[in-house]
């Protein structure tokens, strides 16, 4: 990924450190640890803190596509991981504050599945999909694509980290879903490739991370929560719950997104991504709820709370992003950060 522009002292120092050698980075790492310790103690709300969310996003990115000019040996550097864990700890605490779980369901697959459908069916704030279908301007469709692009150009990757941590029915179900996400062997059918096509049809750059500078902290937070769950084995239940909730809230919104793009005259090249998700996710949500999440809890009942936490956390953070976008649009503002990428 192209290096993003820093958003404060911490992301500046993270980027400077990882684009240098490990030997040269020791002093900056010590300074970084101090800065992060102060920042996480003082930050009013880490979900909306651009500097910390970008720093965390970049630290996670070392485990995905990497960052231009950053050496691969930073990925498992213990001092850098310690800094990541400082931010991660504060982030996880904040995400946990978002979630209040009610009465727990039973630990049968069907009970877990029913509870996940109940949680995802409950009304949770404004609907971006209805707005996109009926009222969004062409500029707003482009903004929508920017927010989505941060994840959709690497769609499925964070949850893939959970595969070797599962077994049996839950693992088979996750692999079945991910195989579909990755195009069943056909690169052009990968969901990330379909989204790249949507972006090209909109006249946008489809390079992964091209619009990262325009994405506000809360959009990065929706991505960081997936990496938090995907990269920590202890949170495998949450990764599974997150994916289940994601699949369960996808079919109908994607049908409405498709309608919004058609309304502006965009053709199949732009809408195929959304149309594909209507059908795919109607399948995935059943597999995810019953076999993946339900299967995991049946084999390991101790993970019930983690599964529900992951689902609720994903829904809560996504709702916050939707609120951010809708509030901006309703008051006639852009929902993005000013950036060179969008000015071009």
């Amino acid at each position: 990924m192209k290096q993003p522009s820093p958003r404060g002292e911490i992301s500046t120092l993270v980027l400077n450190t990882i684009t240098g050698t490990v030997d040269a980075g020791q002093d900056s790492l010590a300074r970084l640890a101090t800065l992060v310790e102060e920042a996480v103690a003082a930050v009013p709300d880490i979900l909306y803190d651009d500097d910390l969310q970008l720093a965390l996003f970049c630290l996670y990115e070392l485990h995905y596509s990497g960052i231009d000019e950053a050496g691969d040996d930073w990925e498992w550097n213990p001092d850098l991981l310690r800094v990541r864990q400082q931010i991660e700890k504060a982030f996880e605490r904040r995400v946990r504050d978002e979630v209040i779980l009610g009465d727990l369901p039973g630990t049968t697959s069907e009970a877990v599945c029913a509870e996940l459908f109940r949680m995802t069916g409950a009304d949770s704030g404004p609907s971006m999909s209805r707005f996109v279908a009926k009222s969004a301007t062409d500029d707003q469709l482009h903004e929508f694509a920017v927010h989505k692009s941060i994840f959709q150009l690497k769609e499925a990757d964070p949850h893939t980290f959970a595969i070797p941590r599962l077994s049996g029915r839950a693992k088979a179900a996750l692999v079945e879903i991910q195989a579909d996400e990755y195009g069943n062997g056909l690169p052009a059918r990968m969901h990330s490739a379909l989204f790249a096509r949507t972006m090209r049809e909109l006249g946008m750059d489809d390079t992964y991370g091209a619009y990262l500078d325009a994405a506000p902290a809360i959009t990065l937070a929706t991505n960081n929560v997936m990496s938090l769950f995907g990269l920590n084995r202890r949170l495998r239940g949450a990764a599974v719950g997150h994916l289940a909730a994601y699949e369960m809230t996808s079919s109908q919104p994607n049908r409405l997104y498709s309608r919004g793009f058609k309304r502006h005259g965009y053709g199949e090249g732009a809408t195929e991504y959304f149309d594909e998700h209507v059908e795919a996710d109607a399948v995935h949500e059943q597999i995810a709820g019953r076999d993946m999440a339900g299967g995991l809890v049946e084999s390991d009942p101790g993970l019930l709370q983690d599964v529900l936490f992951g689902a609720a956390a994903g829904l809560a953070i996504d709702t916050r992003m939707t609120i951010h976008i809708m509030e901006a649009w309703e008051s006639g503002r852009s929902s993005l950060r000013p950036s060179a990428a969008m000015a071009s």
Partner: peptide
């Protein structure tokens, strides 16, 4: 209620 029949489109939830 699906508009993609014979496939499901999640309409049963609505």
């Amino acid at each position: 209620a699906s508009v993609l029949k014979p496939y499901c489109d999640g309409s049963h939830k609505l």
